[in-house]
Design a protein around this nucleic acid. Structure first.
Lengths: 175, 175, 175, 175
DNA sequence: TATGAATGAGACTTCATTCAT
DNA sequence: CATGAATGAAGTCTCATTCAT
């Protein structure tokens, strides 16, 4: 990954997140990256290729984000770490932008990309099982979908306080 | 609203929902509506005007959808009716399409459109208050955001069973 | 066929014949036709669509050109008319351009388009048969391929005299 | 001519013949030659330089091809060798490709390149003169143009049998 | 009101060519 | 001699919008 490739990727990330994939022209990306438009196509083949590269990076980062949770064996700790993820999505403007884009993309691709979340779902399922919840599978899916709702709202509604939502979840699950 | 205006609006609704706003050309809309392209501009001024009209209709329909809940005074009944909304979003392919588009639009407009939900949020708040929940305001927002998460997933993940989610919520709230 | 469609077609014909299909940009065509570039695509869908339209017209004109020969029953007259075709290809600069393009296209499409010539080939075959030539089929193909060679050279070599070639053929076949 | 120069030339030859000059990018040539794109420009200056090199090689090979005929003094033998050229154009796929390209180029350059054929034309003229044909000059040009027609058709029409054409010519000239 | 031909700006993409390494 | 990243001009095509009819 050369320096200019990174510049392109970052510019694309910002612009796609700000204005959407379809709404961002490759020429805008090139301009923001300080690079000739043609270079985008040499490195990523397509405008779609750019998006793919970003999606792949999202999957990579998601893996890292989840690793700590998935490897945890103490069920309460699994829940606690899950509900702490909110902070991690919001560490820097770049990170926030990055995850916002991942959410936005889902609608442009009409693709749930649920496979990203599967390991996490299984970890939660196992935790709820250990905690003797009556229906661990549903409970796990419920928690994740709820957190998705919180994240979605967080990215769309500037006034929404993500942390208070997470705190609410913690109290619901007795943490 | 003349007959042709309706045809245009419906065609736009379908296409925007299927392929996205930016990805749908006015010429496609005209073709699907069986109408000349120019007519769109006579009636709606802009492509954006088309979208606005659709958004306005969404607000209208949302009002109707919520009216029954907002006017309810029995708190348990408020919750029950809220958790029954899932069915209403899915009555016909047209309705499903309509509400899917409303969700999709949020991301294209970067607008939470939270005001649509405000009356409902207040109704839930009041219900939770009557039921002596410790933090009715948070509880209300939590329920709505969760339902948003369920709906989002429902529209993106063909395999997702909305009704089982609603059933889950009902059991959580002892209904 | 509107007036502007014809202008586009004529401009394309001239430019494709002068500079080749691949070497001619749609913007050049539009400029020469005095028309916006987009209009080309509204009417012909593609740059290829433009070429197709021209090829179709070539087939049409070829039919007309051959009709008189194909309907002739006197074998000597069939040959005479065939060898007179040279003149017809050269009546006006436009006609010359038109047929030159048909020859040129064959190489860009890698397509012999032999079907255009089939009726003519059968007519010649029948004529040679009546004249008791030993191998009418080969004789017919030979004559046509020879004439193709003459035409090719005529279009590429400004100094080549097509009529003297035709005269030569006439004398070879005793006309 | 270094080894890499040859590789480039051969790759260009193949690709130009298969897909045409304009339709072949220098990057494709470089890839097929297994060479960096820049090297093409170091060795041939231009994309046009590549074509020129190929044309020059065509002239070289044509000289060799004709040498045997031009030096022949027996007129019948001149004709016989001329009509045997068909085989030589078709010895290997590479040779076939090479000559096909020479034909194709004529249309892209709008250049008859008749000078290549001049020595051959004079040889035929002299042969026909010795054989007392009434118009040796015309006869010679006629034969060559006819053979050109046969070759053209051979390269464009996969179903065309060149050898039967040559055989036909031989019988016409009593060989 | 309604049509659809026409436009012009801008989208994505390709490509010959240059140049630092 | 050799590479391949980088550029900039140009190419094909799309599309919202206008306008004569």
């Amino acid at each position: 990954m050369t320096e200019k490739q990174e510049k392109i990727l970052n510019a694309a990330l910002e612009l796609f997140a700000e204005e959407g994939f379809r709404n961002t022209s490759t020429s805008k990306v090139a301009k923001r990256a300080g690079v000739s438009e043609g270079l985008i196509f040499r490195h990523f083949e397509n405008k779609d290729g750019l998006l793919e590269a970003i999606v792949r990076e999202g999957e990579e980062r998601a893996k890292h984000l989840f690793a700590d949770i998935v490897l945890e064996t103490d069920p309460k700790e699994v829940l606690r770490k899950t509900f702490n993820m909110g902070e991690k999505l919001n560490k820097s403007p770049e990170t926030a932008n990055f995850w916002k884009l991942q959410y936005k993309i889902k609608w442009e691709l009409e693709d749930y990309m649920g496979h990203k979340l599967e390991p996490l779902e299984r970890a939660l399922e196992s935790a709820f099982s250990k905690l003797n919840y009556p229906n661990p599978e549903l409970e796990a899916r419920f928690v994740l979908t709820t957190m998705d709702g919180f994240a979605t709202r967080f990215y769309l509604d500037k006034g929404f306080d993500l942390e208070s939502g997470m705190e609410f979840l913690r109290s619901k699950y007795g943490l």
